[in-house]
């Protein structure tokens, strides 16, 4: 996705080239930060801080997956923010799912005509809210791997690179995260199953 020449130019101190990389990756960086921190303001701060760190640390980037390198900085910055957050009350993600929140309804949740099928619409929104809440209830290590693989769609090796752990650790953490999410949804009254889909 990224142009290696931008990385090369940015490493030489070309801020415009670096800002092209920012534009290319800022959506994903913000999404990851938002899912890890559960708060839009904290996520924006962490994303900005991560890009600044990335710019200053570009010399340490060797050839390879720039996105994984960048997301590693983002997740580390979020871990730092989470450590600081423990001393302060956190803001729930539920607000994002309220009407007018920062999120935009996903295709699988969005009923083309909510007025025609209000029950399904409301149910889907409630399910999304439950999933978000369960995701936030995971320990940070489990949440990170679920966000990277399930929400962001990274493969195991890239997630392992981002989290600086072996691929086997990604595999086991993800399985445990999914088991916890399943239990959490069940406790909230949802039955995560999709019969007929295979």
């Amino acid at each position: 996705m990224h142009d290696p020449t931008w990385v090369e130019a940015a490493r030489r101190g070309d801020l415009d080239a670096f800002n092209r990389l920012v534009l290319a990756y800022q959506d994903q960086a913000y999404r990851v930060a938002y899912r890890l921190l559960g708060d839009p303001d904290a996520a924006a701060d962490a994303t900005q801080e991560a890009f600044l760190k990335a710019y200053r640390g570009l010399r340490t980037f060797r050839a390879g997956n720039f996105r994984a390198w960048l997301l590693r900085i983002v997740t580390n910055t979020c871990y730092d923010a989470l450590r600081r957050q423990r001393r302060r009350p956190s803001v729930s993600l539920d607000a994002s799912l309220e009407e007018g929140g920062p999120g935009e309804a996903a295709a699988w949740l969005r009923d083309p005509n909510p007025a025609a099928n209000p029950e399904t619409y409301a149910e889907n929104r409630a399910l999304a809210a439950a999933l978000e809440a369960c995701l936030q209830g995971l320990p940070p290590d489990f949440r990170a791997v679920a966000v990277l693989v399930d929400v962001e769609g990274l493969d195991y090796p890239t997630a392992a690179q981002v989290l600086a752990v072996p691929v086997g650790t990604v595999k086991s953490r993800l399985a445990r995260a999914r088991a916890r999410l399943r239990d959490c949804l069940r406790a909230a009254g949802w039955e995560p199953s999709s019969p007929g889909e295979r």
Partner: peptide
């Protein structure tokens, strides 16, 4: 169990994406 895993994976992949509040260019 397979159906549960599929449903979870699908649900997480389709969570509403947060709206980015601003550009992060430096």
């Amino acid at each position: 169990a397979w159906a549960e895993l599929r449903a979870l994976k699908t649900g997480l992949a389709h969570l509403p994406p947060p709206r980015r509040p601003r550009d992060f260019t430096l």
